[in-house]
Computed example of a mutant assay.
Amino acid sequence: MTGIPVYEGDTLTGHRVSLPPAYIPVYDARGYKSLLMILPARMGFVPIDRQLGMFDDED
């Protein structure tokens, strides 16, 4: 998994995350081995939650 920081102006808003594909080995009744892709490669965005300061009120 790789993360690329995403900025809006000078503030960090989140990370663009890329996940590689996932493969599993599968054997059939004859003993032949095959690889199945169970999750394709994908991109996503993970936002950064706003952290409250010492003097901020919680809602």
Rank of each mutant, 00 (worst) to 15 (best):
G3T: 09
M43S: 14
P25V: 02
S34L: 00
R42E: 04
T11P: 00
G31R: 01
A29W: 06
Y23G: 01
R50E: 12
K33H: 07
P5L: 13
F45Q: 07
D59A: 14
V6Y: 01
D57F: 15
T13R: 03
L36I: 08
P25N: 04
A41T: 06
G31Y: 00
G31T: 06
G44I: 11
M1S: 13
G31W: 01
A41V: 02
L36E: 08
M54R: 10
M1L: 06
L19T: 11
G31A: 10
D59W: 08
Y7K: 05
L52G: 09
I24P: 00
I38H: 08
G31H: 01
A29E: 14
I48A: 01
P25Q: 06
G14D: 03
T13D: 00
M43F: 12
P21V: 08
E8C: 00
Y27F: 10
L12V: 06
R16M: 14
P47Y: 02
G9K: 06
P25G: 09
L19C: 15
R30S: 13
E8A: 11
P40E: 13
Y32N: 12
V17C: 11
P40W: 01
D56W: 04
R42P: 03
G3D: 02
L39C: 13
L36S: 05
D59T: 15
P21G: 03
E8P: 03
L39V: 08
F55P: 03
V46Q: 12
P40A: 13
P5Y: 05
G31E: 00
L19H: 15
H15E: 13
R30N: 09
S18I: 15
V6Q: 07
P25L: 02
I48S: 08
D49E: 12
T2G: 08
D49S: 13
F45H: 03
P20L: 15
M54I: 12
F45V: 07
G44Q: 10
T11V: 03
